[in-house]
Amino acid sequence: MIKRKQIAIYGKGGVGKSTTTSNLSAALSDIGYTVMQVGCDPKNDSTNSLRGGKPIPTVMDTLRSGSNDFEQIIHEGYNGIFCVEAGGPEPGVGCAGRGIIAAIELLDNNGIIDDYDPDIVIYDVLGDVVCGGFAIPIRQGLAEQIYTVTSSDYMAIYAVNNLFKGILKYSGSGGGLLGGIIGNSIKSLAEKEMIEDFSNKTDSEVIQYVPRSPTVTKCELEGKTTIEGDPDSDQAEVYRELARKVINNQKKFIPKPFDVDALNDWGSTWVSRILLHQKTSSQGIQDDGSGV
């Protein structure tokens, strides 16, 4: 038996965390690991593509109903992956952070994870780390490694920088450390370079770049991960490569986040470069250097 690996994947809303996480889970499961994926986002859609696009009842739903039947919170998905959604309130009411706390405490304190005994637990967490609740998977090494998904969108990188602040804050008291950055929806070299530069300047590392691909969308519409829906595609191979890297990755970085002003300055340089690049490619305008 291998020692259980617990990781958390953070990132800005909509950046592709759940897509990446589900594909990662599916790829790991194909390799032969037992995987549990825990969605920690009140959107409750983390595991949808592992379950034919259908949502599952959440931990908070179960708690609220007064039931102690843990069978209601663990649902098997693609290839026997254990799917869990923490759940939480409708937008605009209640406290989503507390929902994450209550759900994770229920799983952890009752030894539910031990009962199902997965080799790998992946927490898919809404990643602006807006409050203490969303920081739970970072704290006290619940997850030993933290990964973050980002695109080259400035606000996505801004959220990563915030996450780094959170990791740094908890690093002194036994919190989980950074395993690496996953660059997602990559469409151009410039975007890659931007993320690469961010990682260099913050003492971190990019573990994998995932291109933007219509295959992902196609499979998602079928309620499937790319691994399940189009296993022979290049995109599936990218996710499998990510899975192999994650499993073997022992690195733990204490990142050095930018302070806000410095991030702003850094961001504006890169944003103009990327805009220029987009212009050149979409309108056929050349950037400086070799003229027409």
């Binding site: 406290c95 952070g97 507390r98 994450i100 706390i101 409050c131 203490g132 609740g133 920081a135 739970i136 704290r139 006290q140 908890y170 002194g172 008291s173 036994g174 919190g175």
Partner: peptide, 9 residues
């Protein structure tokens, strides 16, 4: 508890 204070930390 609601603010998720990191007591152990």
């Amino acid at each position: 508890g609601v603010i998720g204070e990191d007591i152990e930390g």
